[in-house]
Every structure is written in C-alpha cells, then in structure tokens.
Amino acid sequence: MFSFIIRRVLLVIPTFLAIAFLTFVAIRLVPGDPVEARTGERGISPERLAHFRHELGLDQPVWKQFLDYLWQIAHGDFGTSISTQTPILTEFTTLFPATLELAICAMLFATILGIPAGVIAATRRGTYIDYTLMGAALTGFSMPIFWWGLLLILFFSVDLGWTPVSGRIDLLYYFEPVTGFMLIDSWLSSEEGAFASAVSHLILPTIVLGTIPLATIARMTRSAMLEILGEDYVRTARAKGLSPFRVVGIHALRNALIPVVTVIGLQVGALMAGAVLTEYIFSWPGIGSWLIESIQRRDYPVLQGGILLVSGIVIVINILVDLLYGVLNPRIRHAR
C-alpha cells in the first residue's frame, strides 16, 4: 500500500511538468499578449509596447521564460497577476473556498440522490419507476448548464420568489471572512439569519452544478447494481433468507459502489468545468470566472498558476479516490 502511494505521488511530478508546459505554450499560441489585450481602439505605441513587454519579461525567448517559470514554481512562487498586481496564491486562496464549497455541496447533492436513484432503478428494472428515473437522468445528463441555471433563476427566484437570484449571501450581512466557506463563516458570525441566507443562496447553484454528476452517478449505480444483483453470492444471500434490504443495501451495494466511486472521482474534473459556467450565472466568486477572465486579459501568470493549482487539486483527489477504492475493495488492496 505504502509503495503504491509513493508510486502515485511520484507520477504526479511528470504530470505537473506536462501541465505546466501545455498551459504555458497554449496561452502563448493565442494571438495577442497581456500588454496589447488591455489597449482599446487607440492601440499602443511600439515603444511603450516594447517597454512593457520587457518589464514583463515577454521579450525573452519562450524556452527561457519557461525555465524561469519552472524555477519560480519550484520556489513556491506562482507569480503575480498582471492586471491586478496581486500574488496568484493570494487570489487563489481567496476565491477557491467558494468553488470548493459549491463543489462539495453539488457532489453531496449528486451522491445522496444519485446512488439511491440508481439502486431503486436497478431493483425495479423494467418498471415505469426505472424508466422515469433513467429518463430523468438522461435529461439531466444532456442539460446545458447555462440554460438550466437561467431557467431555474427565472422560475424559482423571479416567478416564485423562493430563492435569491445570485451571490453567496444577502448583501445585508457583512462580516469578515474567516474560513472563506460562507456556510461556516455565516454560522460563526452569529448574525441572525445569516446562515439561513447562505443556505438559500446555495440551493440553486448546487442543483445546477450537481445535475450532471447526479445523472452520471445514478446511471452508473444502476448498471453496476444490475451486474452485481445477477451474481451468485447475491442469489445465495437471498436464498439464505436475508432481508431484501440487507441483500441490496449491504452485500450488493458495497461492491456496486466500486465503479461508482471511480466515476465520482472522475466527476471532480467535470465539476471544475461546470463550475465555470455555474459561477458565472450565479455571480459565485470562485476560480471559474477568474480563469476565464485571465484568458481574455492574457494574464499569463493567473492562467498558468491557476490551472496548475486546480490540476494539483484534481490529482490529489484522484489519488484519494484510488486509496478509497482500496478501502472498498480489499482484493485490490492485497493485489497491490
């Protein structure tokens, strides 16, 4: 197990280097540069352009810029945003808790509803319940996030007035962030109604971001369950006279969860992609729109640093999922 972890961690290094290289090159292949991107119709005089390109080190050969960048990263320095002049790490740590909070809620929403939905569909295979659940899952899976988000806002916020339109908390509440997680901070603030307001602001974005993972998890659980339910040991368990709940809930589900956990792990990457749109629609101050804007502004350090940090997190989560896999499936643990 220990050598397995070491191996996985060592594999991270080349992955990291590859990501750093790809983002570094990709953003530079896009025409335009940070200095030109900020000028309007007037453009910029060649002298000033040269001056600022020099200041930013953009007049150096690309390979040298890349090596300098790696050296910088190796020292834990992710650089400074060109447009805001704030260190990348500061911006990231300010914004990331919002994304993480939303992603955790979306994942909980997807898992808590998705697994039971899949189990129910599998145990009621071929019935209208199965068709309804899987039909809904297919619809959810194909839902364009942008459209879905706006639809929910227009219906629940504007027409029914049940939920707030956007933001993380009612603007009436103002307290200094402690953890960056609004649910926790609003709770700590002990301002009356703050926590409830934070929860109500989370509902729609959670649903929107959680919809696709929910559909994926439900479909995955269903097919995994169907396979397991046909296994001999399940029949044996049934023949032993165990209650249907024990058979399905304990014996079958545990094994069915193995592929589901993998899917949940893989969803983290998809969640990050979905977060970009969800955050935009719901004015959620996370890293999604931060990265998108950095492309528009050609803010190289933000894009490079931001993507590296996000990929780092996705990689760590994937390692954790692999470990969890071992916990769920002792055969794998021993095999390794």
């Binding site: 706006l150 227009l154 916020s157 603007l171 004015s283």
Partner: peptide, 11 residues
C-alpha cells in the same frame, strides 16, 4: 453587487 451575467442582473 458584482453580477457578470446580464440575465441574472435583470433578475
């Protein structure tokens, strides 16, 4: 209130 999407601003 920083609200990037115009439809959300209108809502």
């Amino acid at each position: 209130a920083i609200t990037k999407d115009p439809t959300a601003r209108w809502a």
